[in-house]
Design a protein around this nucleic acid. Structure first.
Lengths: 199, 199
DNA sequence: GAAAAAATAGACCCGCCAGTCCAGAACTTG
DNA sequence: CAAGTTCTGGACTGGCGGGTCTATTTTTTC
C-alpha cells in the first residue's frame, strides 16, 4: 500500500464521491467503473491504483462514506429529538431522485459478496445501530422509556424497518413504508410494557 | 404466445421451481439461466420458449410463485394467531440455507429493472400486505386493537420490517433483526394510543 | 537536480452469461 | 398418416465490463 500524497488523497475521495453519485443514479448493480472514471475525469489506472481490490473495495469505501453521512443518530435523548430524527431520515431518502442507501443495497446483495464483505456489512449495521441504542438507554435512564425494553433489540427492529422502508422506497418510489416503519417503532418504544413474546 | 400443452405447462413450472432453488442458493443476482437449465434438465431453447422476455420474465414468474408460498397471513384474528404467524415468518427464513425472499431481492434491486417491473413489485407488496391489514381491522372490530390505529399504515410498517429483517438476515446470517422488527411491530399494535406523530 | 516514489493515462484482454438460431423430435389434429 | 404445431437440444455469438499492463508525467525526497 503506497503512501498517499495530498493530491492522491483528493483524487481518491473524488472517485468515492463519483461512485456515490453513480450509485445514486443507477443503483449498486448499475454502477460501472467506467462511468465512475468518466464522471470524475480519472482513469482505470487511478481507480485500481487507489482501490487495488477493485469494485468491491470501492463499494466498501462508499458504504463507509455514506454511513458517516447518514442523519446523525446522536443525542437522541428526548422524544422531540427522536421525532426530528425520524423526519430527517424520511426526508433524507424521499424526493431525492438518486439518494439511495448503499447499505441497503449491499445488504440485499446478499452472499454474492465475498466473506469479508459480510464482516464489513455487519460492522456498518452495528455502527448505524449504536446511536439508536445509546439514545434508548439514555431515555430509559431518565425514565422516558420503560426500562424493561431491550434497547439493543428495539434499535435492531428500528434499523430493519429503515432498511426495508428504503428498499420499498427505491423500488416503488413511495416513502409510505419507511414512514410507517419508523412510526411503528416509535409507538412501540412509547408503549409501557414490551410484553416479551417468546423464543 | 403459443398454446401450452400439458407437457409444456409442466416443463414451464419445472423451470420456475428450478429458478427458485437457484435463487435460494445464490441469490437473484447470482442466478444464472445456464444453471437453471442444467438443474431442471431443460435447455436454453425451452427457457426462452416459455419465457420470451428472458431473465426478467422468469424473475416475475418466480416472484409471483413465491408470494403465494409465503406464510399465509390469513386469519390473523387473535393475538395467538399473530404470534404463531410471527414465529412462522422467522422460521421460514432462518436456518434455511437458501430460503430467500425474492421480493426483498427484487425490491432492493431497485430501478435497474424495467418500469413495468416496478408495477409488479408494487402489486406483490400490496398482496403481502393485504392479509395483515385485514387481520388488524378484524382485531379492531373485536376491540383487541385500538381503533385509532391506522391499519394500512401499521401493516406497511410491519412489512417494511420484514423486508429489512430478511435483508439483514441474508447479509449477515443473523435473524435477530427480523425478530426484533416483528416484535417491535407487535408491541406497537398492542399499544393503547398510536400517538400520531406528525406530518 | 537526480533518483525514487507516486500519479495518470488508456489500450488491451478475457471470462461470463443473456440471448439467438436452427435443426430435429414429439405431440395433436383432421 | 400427413400436416401443422409445439417442444427440445445445444452450439454459437455478442457485448459488456471488470481487471491487467506498461508507459509517461508529476511530485517528493535527499
Amino acid at each position: 500500500m503506497p503512501k498517499l500524497t495530498r493530491k492522491g488523497a483528493e483524487t481518491r475521495s473524488r472517485i468515492v464521491a463519483g461512485a456515490i453519485a453513480e450509485i445514486g443514479e443507477h443503483g449498486v448493480t448499475g454502477m460501472r467503473l467506467e462511468d465512475v472514471v468518466l464522471r470524475t475525469r480519472t482513469s482505470k489506472g487511478q481507480l485500481f491504483h487507489y482501490f487495488p481490490g477493485g469494485r468491491d473495495e470501492l463499494l466498501f469505501a462508499v458504504a463507509e462514506a455514506e454511513a458517516a453521512r447518514r442523519p446523525d443518530a446522536g443525542g437522541l435523548t428526548t422524544w422531540a429529538a427522536w421525532h426530528t430524527w425520524r423526519d430527517r431520515v424520511v426526508e433524507h431518502y424521499r424526493d431525492r431522485t438518486g439518494r439511495r442507501c448503499v447499505l441497503s443495497d449491499l445488504a440485499a446483495q446478499g452472499e454474492r459478496t465475498s466473506p469479508g464483505a459480510q464482516a464489513v456489512i455487519a460492522r456498518l449495521i452495528a455502527l448505524s445501530q449504536a446511536g439508536l441504542t445509546d439514545g434508548i438507554r439514555h431515555m430509559q435512564a431518565t425514565g422516558d422509556i420503560d426500562p424493561g425494553l431491550d434497547a439493543d433489540r428495539a434499535a435492531a427492529g428500528l434499523l430493519a424497518g429503515i432498511q426495508g422502508g428504503v428498499a420499498v422506497l427505491t423500488a416503488t418510489g413511495s416513502a409510505a413504508h419507511l414512514e410507517a416503519a419508523l412510526d411503528l417503532g416509535l409507538t412501540a418504544m412509547r408503549a409501557p410494557a414490551p410484553a416479551r413474546a417468546r423464543s
